[in-house]
Design a protein around this nucleic acid. Structure first.
Length: 424
RNA sequence: GGAGGUGUCGCCUAGUCCGGUCUAUGGCGCCCGCCUGCUAAGCGGGUUUGGGGCUACAACCCCAUCGAGGGUUCAAAUCCCUCCACCUCCGCCA
């Protein structure tokens, strides 16, 4: 939710941000009108309520005939108060809905436009030239089969399309990546967390996943519970309804959880392998800090993501995601995309968003500052999404005989193995 | 899953049976001031959160807020219903 006061004071800034996202500014006018309506209804209710309280207070000491008179007046007043209250509740709800429909105000720096209007900020490393090396790279599905690491056939048999089993070195790789990621996070002051992957509607709603994104979310039948698509959801809701002490900021958490996604709009896309799946595990960084500090923290999250990819010796580029592709909550977003040899292109491996105070408002997370409380900023960033990272590692570090060289940083977590060898 | 109990403004707590004097008691902590070689103690005051009005987003006035949401009533912390969380016991279980 955007700042209602800022909307009232400077609606043109919000209109401009909507334009950068390629969205209509109608929601702005709807929200402003709803705000007017809301404040009028509040004034009406409060005036009647104050009068009712005044009269009510007189009743106990009143004489018999005074009492009868008072009772008659308060009785009709009570009905008025009730309807005024109902009107206020309705107006308040309309206002809230109108406000909730407005996405976070995109950063001035975020490129205008949609999905394809990103700006490449930098390119790190060079994609391997397999032609020069004299062999055709195998894709991760084949490598996964040769190494006994990924079993997509049985995944489909047991759970359906877009499911898989990680076996042997595949499972070992996930464990190793998790440990490497957690060690890096811990060294940088993150608290390691294993959060619940099932959450209530409030958590989903608060993080902005029940709007247009709702199609992609699994709901538990008859339970009022959702499977999270990222641990951003439980970690944002972790401090919901709390007033935090800013002297302890930034609060940094590194959460490991499964992620579940319906991938509703992606039929036919990435049908092979484990690039796009209904479930994967992920280590996610999540930070609570002040609005002022959030911009610098966003850069730090990006730096940590790059550090992790560097350790895995991957070639990647960093893009500044365009306003129209930010999603509901983000004010700015950077994606790290790794080179996938058999696809001949860069694919998103990690993503970091500054949600400023947008989620904090929805989830009522404030800090106690001089001069009162105010919403804090939340940020998130992928440290390691297992499946895609495994794809990138296998394809990038494969050798002509189908074996895979293990990046040095990962070796201590893989029992010292330097090479993953094909199984018989 | 079954039975019972509990939920009060940071923490603890009075109040709930018998609705109005609750603009919610007291203690601890914290903040400001006084006192004081210093510290401690003592004394006085303050200390939920959100919103509206008015405005310098000050002061002030008002409304809401006793786990959440409904209901009864002129009036609800107090009575009724639903939900949530926690505790105890039983059952089941990794």
């Amino acid at each position: 939710m955007i700042d209602p006061r800022a909307l009232r004071d400077d609606p043109d800034r919000v209109r401009a941000a909507q334009a950068r996202r390629g969205l209509s500014a109608d929601v702005v006018d709807t929200a402003l009108a709803a705000d007017e309506e809301r404040r009028t209804s509040i004034a009406d209710f409060e005036r009647l309520r104050a009068e009712q309280k005044q009269l009510s207070k007189q009743i106990p000491q009143a004489s018999a005939e005074q009492k009868a008179d008072l009772l008659a007046r308060t009785k009709t007043l009570a009905a008025d108060v009730k309807s005024a209250e109902a009107a206020q509740t309705a107006a308040e709800q309309d206002w809230r809905e109108a406000l909730m429909a407005i996405p976070n105000v995109a950063a001035e720096e975020a490129p205008a436009g949609g999905e394809d209007d990103y700006v490449v900020l930098e390119t790190v490393g060079t994609p391997r030239d397999f032609a020069a090396e004299g062999f055709e790279p195998r894709d991760h599905v084949e490598l996964g089969r040769i190494l006994g690491a990924i079993d997509v056939e049985r995944g489909a048999k047991v759970s359906g399309s877009r499911f898989y089993f990680l076996t042997g070195v595949g499972a070992d790789l996930e464990m190793a990546l998790t440990q490497l990621a957690m060690d890096q996070a811990r060294a940088n002051g993150f608290t390691t967390v294993i959060p619940p992957a099932l959450v209530r509607p409030r958590a989903m709603e608060g993080t902005g996943f029940l709007g247009q994104a709702a199609d992609d979310v699994y709901r538990i039948d008859g339970e009022d519970l959702y499977l999270v698509g990222t641990s951003e959801v439980p970690m944002a809701a972790y401090h919901s309804d709390e007033i935090l002490d800013p002297s302890r900021f930034p609060l940094r958490y590194a959460a490991f959880s499964p992620c579940y996604r319906k991938e509703a709009g992606s039929h036919g896309k990435d049908t092979k392998g484990i690039i796009r799946v209904h479930w994967f595990d992920k280590v996610e960084m999540f930070v609570y800090t002040t609005l002022e500090e959030s911009f610098a923290e966003h850069q730090r999250l990006l730096a940590w993501e790059k550090e992790f990819l560097d350790k895995l010796e991957l070639a990647y580029r960093v893009i500044d995601v365009a306003a129209g592709d930010l999603g509901l909550s983000a004010q700015r977003k950077f994606d790290c995309e790794a080179w996938i040899p058999t696809q001949g292109r860069y694919r998103e491996l990690t993503s970091t968003s500054n949600c400023t105070d947008f989620q904090a408002r929805r989830l009522d997370i404030r800090g106690r500052f001089e001069g009162g409380t105010s919403p804090v900023a939340t940020l998130n960033g992928t440290l390691c999404a297992m499946t895609r990272t495994i794809v990138a590692i296998l394809e990038t570090h494969q050798q002509a005989d189908g074996s895979v060289r293990v990046p040095e940083a990962l070796r201590p977590y893989l029992q010292g193995r330097e090479v993953l060898k094909p199984v018989e």
